[in-house]
Amino acid sequence: MSGIKILLVEDDWIIAKEISLSLHDLGFEVLAHVESGEDALKKIAEQKPDLILLDIGLSGELSGIETAQIIKKEHHLPFIFLTALADSSTIEKAKLTEPYAYLVKPVKIETLYSTIEITLYNAAQRKDVTPFLKEGLTINDAIFVKTKGRLEKLQLNQVLWVEASDIYALVCTASGKYLLNTSLAAVEEKFPSDSFLRVHRSYIVNVNKIEAIEKDELFINQQRIPIGKTYKDKLMSKLSFL
């Protein structure tokens, strides 16, 4: 996402390098990489990042949690904690700073992208949250999706399938993919059940867009989508046969 400036606060050089490369690949700008909470606070005051990736276990005088407390109190900027497998006591302390999310190291690029996208959206909408999904949707309704820093209207009849992306949902159309600030389970509940059907624990499909079925897979827009055993009977009952 061009124009989004991220400050990376991580005292492990190798991990920081890997995350920096991933951020560049995703189109974000790494404003700076610093190794201590003290340096992070200086950079924040000087350069005003849009988002901070903050290691919990910093080795400087300020811990990541102490740094987060100052960021929250004085700068009001969104931050995401980076953590290894921390103990429950540390996590409980971290929760009190109200981070937007946690990323467990090593960080997968897909998880990094989805977490940052949702964080930026939530940060922008904190004062006026726009719900993505209303009750009683029909196939002719539209929803608003986050793309290129703004909300755009998407007709449900354009949706090919929806797939899980960590704890969020990725709406797939012929023209692109859009991240929803909600879970796949919430999509299943709100999308019209006469047209959208869960066929796998990670996929909901628009049954009107199915082009073919082969053993334990179906095809939409030349994309193979797995069919879970527990969902196959319900799927087949939705289809017409000659």
Rank of each mutant, 00 (worst) to 15 (best):
I4S: 07
K5N: 14
K5H: 13
E10V: 04
W13H: 15
S20D: 14
S20Q: 15
H24I: 14
D25E: 15
L26V: 07
G27D: 01
F28D: 08
F28Q: 10
F28Y: 14
V30H: 00
L31I: 12
H33W: 07
V34T: 10
V34L: 05
G37P: 01
G37K: 00
K42L: 12
I44N: 12
K48I: 00
P49N: 11
D50H: 15
D50N: 15
L53F: 07
I56T: 04
I56F: 02
S59F: 06
E61Y: 03
G64P: 04
I65M: 13
A68M: 14
I70M: 10
L77S: 05
L82A: 04
T83S: 14
A86Q: 09
S88Q: 15
E92F: 02
K95D: 10
K95Y: 08
T97M: 03
T97E: 02
P106F: 00
E110L: 09
T111E: 12
T111K: 12
Y113E: 13
T115A: 11
T119M: 02
L120H: 03
A124D: 02
Q125S: 14
Q125T: 14
R126G: 03
R126N: 06
T130S: 10
P131N: 08
E135P: 02
I139K: 09
I143A: 04
V145F: 00
K148N: 09
L151Y: 12
Q155G: 13
L160K: 11
V162G: 06
E163A: 04
D166A: 13
Y168S: 00
V171Q: 01
C172L: 07
T173W: 01
T173A: 02
T173N: 07
S175L: 13
K177N: 13
K177Y: 09
T182K: 11
L184K: 05
V187D: 01
K190Y: 04
K190I: 01
S195A: 11
F196M: 06
L197T: 01
R198I: 05
H200A: 07
H200G: 05
I204D: 03
V207C: 02
I210W: 04
E211H: 05
E211I: 00
E214H: 13
D216V: 10
E217R: 14
F219R: 05
F219P: 08
I220P: 00
N221Y: 08
R224Q: 15
R224G: 11
P226G: 05
I227A: 04
I227G: 11
K229M: 05
Y231P: 06
Y231A: 06
Y231G: 05
D233R: 11
K234L: 00
L235Q: 04
S237F: 04
L242G: 11
L242A: 12
